[in-house]
């Protein structure tokens, strides 16, 4: 594999997304939502303080609002990643652009990896920028900063890269709409499995838990989302749940008492690599 050609394709991908204005639309919408969030949190905090609510409670309230915002944001990010990545190869095959490019001394693997690299840079950069902005604005208006914003943003970016890898790999074989739709469904399924296995723990329904856990390993996006929550969860909340209501809190899909295990993080990285390799293998076998 030639690194030069991978970079040529990656920079082509960056240029494509910048030119197609979708990135600017997303960025504009994100900035608008951050402004809205800042305004909302400011109202909330001002109102609570005027009512003499305990400062600790205000902080905890803001931290939970931030987690909810991050959830919404991770969803938007996953959708964007899916719909940016699904057509990256699929639509070039549909328009015949890819035949003109692959007649050159360009390996199919170089095309897929170059596309992946360009998209991953965009999506991770976008996650980092908008995430930091949201955390900073909330910090500014409420005085609350999450314990490890870097961890939260890294997991947010990781989750979006996992989603984009899946959409890109499916798009090497399927039409772009199908690849995008399947990715979104699988992402939703992963999240649902996460909720299901939490509920199963509370009710002691072991088979259900096992099923949920299996899905969460096959689609690691939900596990990565737990990493985002962990980075945003104040230690106080974690301590408070260590008591007798711990089981109930664990069923909450917006709570994480511990970071994702290192083995899970390693597995997620391997999963991204395996999905990418599967995409390359499918694309190499494809008749153009």
């Amino acid at each position: 594999m030639s690194p030069r050609l991978v970079l040529v394709i990656a920079s082509l991908t960056l240029r494509e997304i910048a030119r197609r204005r979708i990135l600017w639309v997303l960025l504009g919408l994100s900035i608008a939502s951050v402004v809205l969030v800042g305004w909302g949190v400011d109202r909330l905090v001002t109102f609570a303080r005027a009512e003499d609510v305990d400062e600790l409670q205000v902080r905890i309230g803001v931290s939970q609002v931030l987690i909810l915002i991050a959830f919404m944001f991770s969803f938007v990010l996953a959708m964007s990643a899916a719909f940016l990545a699904a057509p990256a190869i699929a639509s070039d095959v549909e328009t015949g652009t890819v035949s003109a490019m692959l007649a050159r001394p360009l390996r199919r693997a170089e095309l897929v990896v170059g596309r992946w690299l360009g998209l991953a840079l965009i999506v991770a950069g976008y996650a980092a920028l908008s995430g930091l902005l949201a955390i900073a604005v909330v910090g500014l208006v409420s005085g609350h900063t999450p314990p490890s914003p870097g961890v939260a943003i890294a997991f947010l970016a990781f989750q979006s890269v996992a989603v984009l890898t899946l959409a890109l790999a499916l798009g090497t074989r399927l039409p772009s709409i199908a690849a995008g739709a399947i990715t979104v469904v699988l992402f939703g399924l992963g999240w649902f499995a996460g909720v299901l296995s939490s509920v199963a723990v509370v009710f002691g329904a072991a088979p259900l838990g096992a099923l949920g856990d299996t899905v969460r390993i096959l689609i690691p996006t939900d596990g990565l989302w737990r990493g985002v929550i962990y980075g945003l969860e104040p230690p106080l909340v974690i301590l408070a749940t260590a008591g007798r209501n711990a089981q109930a809190m664990r069923a909450n899909p917006f709570f994480a008492g511990e970071p994702p295990p290192a083995a899970f993080v390693a597995w997620s990285a391997a999963w991204v690599l395996l999905v990418l390799l599967a995409g390359i293998a499918m694309f190499r076998r494809r008749e153009l």
Partner: peptide
């Protein structure tokens, strides 16, 4: 039958 990248 082909189209080049329309945005280039």
């Amino acid at each position: 039958l082909f189209r080049y990248q329309a945005w280039l």
